[in-house]
Design a protein around this nucleic acid. Structure first.
Lengths: 223, 223, 223, 223
DNA sequence: CATGAATGAGAATTCATTCAT
DNA sequence: GATGAATGAATTCTCATTCAT
């Protein structure tokens, strides 16, 4: 085997570990399988990671680091609470498309009895969920969201709800478009589910505008 | 150990299994620990349950059976979509209070890679979640909920969101009152988070009309 | 369950045991499977047979008893060594057709290290193989078989050879006609495999005459 | 236990396994007993052999490999069908003298219900038995054996017959000389067991010669 | 007689981790 | 730095047999 840079070897192990940890439960994932996939022997893994648990934590940290690095600058460029929420929801849905098993892994691991709070994963999760939390808080401050909104509750409803739906949708073997679903979800959450019977005329008007927009799009295209 | 009534022994094993399965991950939970807790030897467990997985399934089935038996008659007695939702949300929150570890167990197990859909747990979950799904669908039919509400999505947002919040809340070591939290949550979901909810549709509409006018102006110029 | 005659219950167990012992190795055959097949519970079996090994011995004894009872009168009715051999060979081949797995069971059990000689099965086997042994000895006495024939060796060659061939033939998934194969086998054994069968005795004779002449020459000289 | 050369450890395990597998049935033989005999722990065995069955296959393969390597060159050096058969029969008898328990193991394992055909042992057996099969076929081609000889049947009669006799002989606690027994067996098989099968006159002649020889012997002794 | 729940010893197998090379 | 052989503890599951009912 030719000389390898240490970082390269470490990445290979991390990639293999991610593969195996998402495919099996933590206990069922074996170091020997990860080693085989990484093209090295078990012992080598222990020169990079202290033990199996730390290897998993490294996999999770790599994922969250990349996620945060991706979200931060793009969120900064968006103004308006509704648009920010649309982005964050769509981005969170995207996780389930990019690697659905990884989302499940995170949920599984976060529900380990007594081991989650204070864990590495907990810290990672908190860092990432701050984006949503702060967006909501700023929405309240700006007057775009109700002043009495419980932001922590709202944040958990969004993250928990999205994960649950995306997981079930995958089980139904249906594909989805993150942006479109995000639109729907954010619309539901911001505008509420209750029918406004008194607003019937408004609804009628809204539908007429829909039709207008549609014909306009067609007119545009024909040209 | 002398002869016992079969049902009694079975319940003892089930109770012990529930204890152990909630305290550890499925793989970490050992039959020997369950046996010790149930006051019998490992072999005895296998005269009641074919294997470890079936024992877990039996624990879950016992939980869901009791849950469904509790919910069904009480839900029947409630009329009005908002009240029903309040009841279902409060009841779901109650699970996290009664046995928080069991909720985590269910989530953990339902995220097992490739093993959930089609499993016993999946079937149990579906049976229970039908209460909420049907409540939502009836709400739409009655005109109490928006006609365009995606009920499956709404259901997943509720269940996923509640579980996520309750789990985190427990991590924050805070107590809560299910009925009060349910009021808040149902209020948030039905009425929306946007400021001046009744004006929101108008705001949306006005923005769309803005855009329409702008486009029409462009169209006109191009001609 | 209605009253049963004890003999009937015993036969049911025996039949079930035969089924299971032929389908699996002794260790893989389980009392519970036999009980299930016999329509009773494990405990009942122990009121008829002291233990698993005795149950197997009873199965084997039943088989050999029936075999001996079938062979004895029919062999008595046959005269002429060649015909008797044809009958015994065909009858032995028939075992492999009637219940091929039983033949394999007998071989398997008889090759148990250190446990065969002096066992029940050994005694049963000896009783049955005496038919062939005596037929061969009588053939020698009557001058129908070579005077120098080692009857014990001949007997083992026949039984071992037939079992081996029938087992392999079954593996090749070919059917056969016991009487026809018996004809072939007895023909091969009695007449020999060497070419020009009619000349073989002559060749033997001429070699003996050579030796005679040589000896006589020596004798003559010595005188 | 310090580091060892891999081949040495493997041989130790193989030797221990051979010891235990011949002394007990496959199921009764335990990995822990093999490990104890090999001077290692159970886990070590699984780094060399995937499971118990593969360990047994390795034991059998080692035996057959050595057997084939021994037989092939020596058989090549022999010409004449009768001599070749004598060699093969003697060599096969030799197995029962060298390691009688191993012969029994092979028979036991080859009679496993439904598991033999297509197994490793089956393949090994076929490779070895080809020596005899080809010798017989060549004997027919050369005109040394009857043109109508069924070689597969002849082969099975020889192998099955020899194994059966050797096993019983061992039970009788008698020693034997492979070469001498092989002479007798090959003589029996090639020349037939019938007394002067077709030629009565020849038989008469033969008996007269017998008497001549007998008197000659007496004459010699008397002197 | 029949039952069948309970036993308890023992089986194969897995695997994270270590450490001498 | 990499190796990979060895460990040894732990796990699930099986089953002949017993004996109180």
């Amino acid at each position: 085997m030719p000389r390898r840079r240490k970082a390269a070897r470490s990445s290979e192990i991390l990639a293999a570990a991610r593969e195996v940890f998402t495919a099996r439960s933590y206990e069922e994932a074996s170091i020997s399988e990860i080693a085989a996939l990484a093209g090295c022997v078990e012992g080598t893994i222990y020169t990079y990671f202290r033990n199996k648990r730390e290897l998993l934590d490294a996999v999770l940290a790599a994922f969250f680091d990349a996620l945060v690095d991706d979200v931060a600058p793009r969120l900064d460029a968006i103004h308006g609470t509704r648009d920010r929420l649309r982005f964050l929801v769509a981005r969170h849905l995207q996780i389930s498309l990019d690697d659905p098993a990884l989302g499940a892994l995170i949920v599984r691991e976060s529900r380990r009895q007594g081991a989650y709070f204070g864990s590495k994963l907990h810290e990672l999760n908190r860092r990432y969920s701050r984006f949503l939390q702060q967006t909501l808080e700023e929405g309240v401050r700006r007057g775009e969201l109700r002043a009495d909104l419980n932001c922590a509750l709202a944040r958990d409803l969004i993250f928990g709800g999205i994960e649950h739906w995306a997981f079930n949708e995958r089980g139904r073997r249906r594909a989805f478009e993150p942006a479109a679903v995000a639109d729907t979800i954010v619309g539901m959450l911001l505008d509420g589910w209750a029918a406004s019977p008194q607003d019937a005329p408004l609804a009628v008007l809204s539908r007429r505008v829909d039709r207008l927009e549609a014909s306009l799009r067609q007119t545009g295209r024909r040209k």
